[in-house]
Design a binder for these strands. Structure first.
Lengths: 169, 169
DNA sequence: TTATTGGTTCTGTGTTTGCAGAACTAACTG
DNA sequence: CAGTTAGTTCTGCAAACACAGAACCAATAA
């Protein structure tokens, strides 16, 4: 039978953070930024929401309601974010909901990985150099030059983080 | 009327570079690499072809034939690559064909741009920090930390290239 | 036990993508 | 002039994408 009291008590929808226009606009912009990086629209919006949300932890339901999308879409997007290790959830005693948060603590490793990833083109450059003849020496030289730089760059990444640590202290 | 002599003389198809299996496979791998970066498939294949092709300059026709795609697709892909400043064409006296090549000389600027681009997330982080309350201080601190690093990183980019130049000599 | 909650998986669908093929244009050729 | 060459633009379509909605499942509550 329907009981009003428990409904209010258990329904956390009423507790949703209030998003101002500024919040919503920022979420959208963060969304398109991530779209440009190849992610699907909703994934970018969720990242935006998790960033601007004052708690930093947001329930599945609140994501559905704040972004106005379906449960299935949110489920898939969150599965993706967790698979990519960009997101985790925690639970609370006496509460079956999952509270999702960005893994902001990993930004060093994430950023380092991104840097290494953009330098990955070196592998291809080197393989190209292996199959190329000497017919166009200048072209080959430019490629060799680029490859050398990429090798240098990769080596420099750890030092970069160390220098940051030093100048921070 | 049909004349055999001029046809052979003017038809450069017969002059196409021979691509081995190794070449073709490498082109495909370079293609998917660029697909992951958000480019459309054919664009990546063309970059691959321009890289492994011994001349470094490849005619429109040869691209069509070597990759087995339509003229329209090649036209659009080349327009895109030129718009992105990754590709240029040159012509030869008495030859109406265009010979396309990668702008390999610009790799420094291109790479610097890519680095700056991945650091662009800082703008969003800072805007997020502006709208956030102090309700979750730890979360804010991590974001501030990340933003500081991104600022530091951007500043370091020119020095990086200089250090490369120095150690090269 | 049935009902409810929290979330996942399946099915269908409008939209976008990526290309083919044809029509077209501009420049040269005979 | 008509015909050829080199490339562009237009039209259409098959496949992939991104999501909605419904069915579904597992855990808790009544």
């Amino acid at each position: 039978m329907f009981t009003f009291g428990p409904l209010l008590a258990h329904n956390p929808n009423t507790l949703n953070m209030v998003l101002t226009e500024k919040h919503k606009e920022l979420i959208e912009r963060i969304g398109v930024f991530h779209e440009h990086k190849g992610m699907q629209p909703l994934v970018g919006r969720i990242i935006g929401l998790l960033l601007v949300h004052e708690e930093g932890e947001v329930s599945f339901d609140e994501i559905v309601e704040q972004l106005g999308v379906s449960k299935s879409a949110v489920s898939n997007a969150l599965t993706f974010l967790q698979a990519k290790d960009r997101c985790i959830y925690s639970t609370r005693p006496g509460d079956r909901k999952r509270y999702f948060a960005l893994k902001l603590s990993d930004w060093r490793e994430d950023f380092a990985k991104e840097l290494e990833n953009i330098a990955e083109i070196q592998k291809f450059i080197d393989q190209v150099l292996e199959v190329r003849t000497e017919k166009n020496h200048e072209f080959n030289c430019k490629m060799k030059d680029f490859s050398d730089f990429l090798g240098f760059f990769k080596k420099e990444i750890p030092a970069l983080f160390e220098r940051f640590k030093k100048q921070q202290a």
